[in-house]
Design a protein around this nucleic acid. Structure first.
Lengths: 277, 277
DNA sequence: CGAACTTTTGACAAGCATCAACACGTGTGG
DNA sequence: CCACACGTGTTGATGCTTGTCAAAAGTTCG
C-alpha cells in the first residue's frame, strides 16, 4: 500500500486524475461514507465542525453554534490569490473542497508556499483574530469555500469557551506543522522534502475523511511542489524522475521512518491528540 | 544606527560581549529603566505579563493571577537541551533572561532551530496545551527560566478568558513568525537569511525592553546561526566575512526594505497589533 | 485547431556542503 | 602556575546539489 501511494506521488502527470475525475471521485466518496458526508451536503460546515471536535470536546450547543454560522459559499478557480498579504480581512474562509496554500513572495518574485489546507480547514483564522493578513492565500486547485464574517467567528469564540479552546488547539497544531516545514526546507534534500510533503498531505487527507482507500488526491503541479519545498520546478521534475525509476527507493524508507518519528506516526500532526486537561 | 547594528552583527567574535559583560549590561539596564524592571526583580514573571498585555487587554485581576503563578526558578548553562522531543511535559518554562531555541534533529544528526525565544517568552505553551513536545528546546546562552506547573498554566487560561485570548494571540503571532522562517530558509540566500535573522532578534529585543539604545545582545555562535538559517557554520562564517568587508552592503538595504515590508515595519511580528475585536 | 499551461530535456554556472587543518581564547585540573 | 582539552572562528581545496536559461514535447480546454 505504501508502494502504491508513493507510486501515485511520483507517477507522471499523464496518470494524474484530472479535476473532473476528482470531482467524480468525491461524489462517489460522498455516497459511500454515509452520515457525515450526507450532512455535509446540507450543512457545508460539517467537515470543519468534525475537525474542531477532534481538537477539543464540543457539546451539542457548540456544534449547533458552529453549524449555524452565516456563510456565503463561493467557487474559486485554480491559481487565484484570494487573500492578499496586507489585507485587513473582513471575512474568514473555510475550505469545503479543493486545496489552498498560504504563500509569501520575495523581492525577486519567488514564491514560498508555507502550508497547504484542505476540506474542513479554517484558512483565515490567524487573519481574523489578528485583523491583518501577514500572508496571501492562493487556490491550488479549483476551490469551494464558505466565507464567514469575521465578527461572527470572533463572536462564537467569545460565547463558547470550548470553541475558543478548539481554535487554540487547532492553531497550536498548525504551529507544529509550520515548525516541521522549517525543518523540511532547512535540512532535507530534494527527495526527502518531496516525500515528506507527500506523506503529510496523504495523512491529512485521511484525517479529513478524504481519499478512497489507498487512493488520494494529488492535484499539485510540479511548480506548486517546488514553491512548497523551496525548490525549482525543474529540479522537482528531475527528482521525481529519479524516484520513479526506483534508483533511489528512499521514499518508502522515508515513509516507514516518518511513521515512527517521535514514537507515534507523524507526531507533529497531533492527529491522535486532544486537550488532556 | 542601522550601520552600527549591522556592524555588531557581523563583527568578529573577539569584539562580541562576553556573557559576563552581558550580565553587567542587563544590570545597568535595570537601573535605568525604572518601574517595570524594578518590579521584575521582585516578580520574575513581570516581563511575561507585560508581553501578554501587549497581545490582549488584561485587567488587574488577570495580571495578579499571572504574577502569582507558582514558579520554580532555575539556571541552565548554555547548550543544554532541557526539553526533549517526545516528552510529555509537566511544566512550562518562561524565560527570565538569556536565549532559548526550539529545535529538531534529522537522521544525519543535523539540527534545525525553528525559533529563538527571549525574556518574557513562554517557551512551552504548545507543549503544555497539547500535552506532548513535538520539538526540543535548547538553551542558546546561559539561561534563567521560571518553571510553571502545567496544570497551573491551563487553569489560569480556563479561569480568565482574557488570559486565554492573550495566549491565543501570542500563539498566532508565533505562527506568523514560523511562516516567515519557512520563507527565510526556503527562498533567501545566505546573506539575506542571516540579515533577516539578525533584524528579527533586534526588533524582538526592542519590544521586550532588552538592549540599550542601539546596542543589542548577540550571544549566538556561528554554528547556532547556521542551525537557525539552514546553513553550515563554515558558510555562515564566509558570508559574515563578505558582509564585513562591505563588498556587499545588502544588509542595510535589507533592513530598510524589511522595515517597510507589508506597509509596516516587519508586519509579520505583529508588534503594533492588539485584538481589534 | 490554437492558446496556455505543464512536463521534460540539455548545457552550464553558482551556491553551498564537506573534510581537514590551524589559530585563538577560555576554563580546568594536575 | 602551567599544560591541556575544548569550544569557536578561520582558511583552503574540492565536489555535489541545486539554480538558471532555453527550448521542445505533451496536455487541456475553449
Amino acid at each position: 500500500m505504501f508502494q502504491q501511494m508513493c507510486q501515485a506521488c511520483v507517477s507522471s502527470s499523464h496518470r494524474q486524475p484530472s479535476f473532473r475525475a476528482l470531482a467524480a471521485e468525491e461524489q462517489h466518496l460522498a455516497q459511500q461514507e454515509g452520515a457525515l458526508m450526507t450532512i455535509a451536503h446540507i450543512a457545508p460546515l460539517a467537515p470543519m465542525v468534525s475537525k474542531l471536535a477532534r481538537r477539543a470536546t464540543l457539546g451539542v450547543p457548540e456544534m449547533d453554534a458552529l453549524l449555524s454560522l452565516p456563510i456565503r459559499q463561493v467557487s474559486i478557480v485554480a491559481g487565484r490569490q484570494f487573500v492578499q498579504e496586507g489585507d485587513t480581512s473582513s471575512s474568514c474562509a473555510v475550505i469545503l473542497s479543493g486545496f489552498a496554500g498560504r504563500s509569501k513572495t520575495v523581492r525577486n518574485g519567488n514564491r514560498q508556499i508555507m502550508s497547504i489546507d484542505m476540506r474542513g480547514d479554517i484558512v483565515d483564522l490567524p487573519n481574523s483574530f489578528l485583523g491583518y493578513a501577514d500572508h496571501s492565500v492562493t487556490s491550488l486547485s479549483r476551490l469551494e469555500v464558505a466565507e464567514i464574517p469575521r465578527h461572527a467567528i470572533l463572536a462564537v469564540a467569545e460565547a463558547y469557551p470550548a470553541i475558543a479552546r478548539a481554535f487554540m488547539l487547532d492553531t497550536l497544531i498548525n504551529g507544529s506543522i509550520f515548525r516541521e516545514w522549517i525543518l523540511n526546507v532547512g535540512q532535507r534534500d530534494a527527495r526527502e522534502r518531496i516525500s515528506h510533503l507527500y506523506c503529510e498531505i496523504v495523512l491529512r487527507q485521511r484525517e479529513a475523511g478524504l481519499g478512497l482507500g489507498p487512493t488520494y488526491n494529488w492535484p499539485f503541479s510540479q511548480e506548486q511542489i517546488g514553491d512548497a519545498t523551496g525548490l525549482t520546478a525543474v529540479h522537482v521534475n528531475r527528482t521525481l524522475q529519479t524516484m520513479r525509476t526506483g534508483k533511489h527507493t528512499l521514499t518508502i524508507e522515508d515513509w516507514a521512518k516518518l511513521q515512527k518519528d517521535g514514537g507515534s506516526e507523524k507526531a507533529y500532526l497531533h492527529q491522535d491528540r486532544m486537550l488532556a486537561a
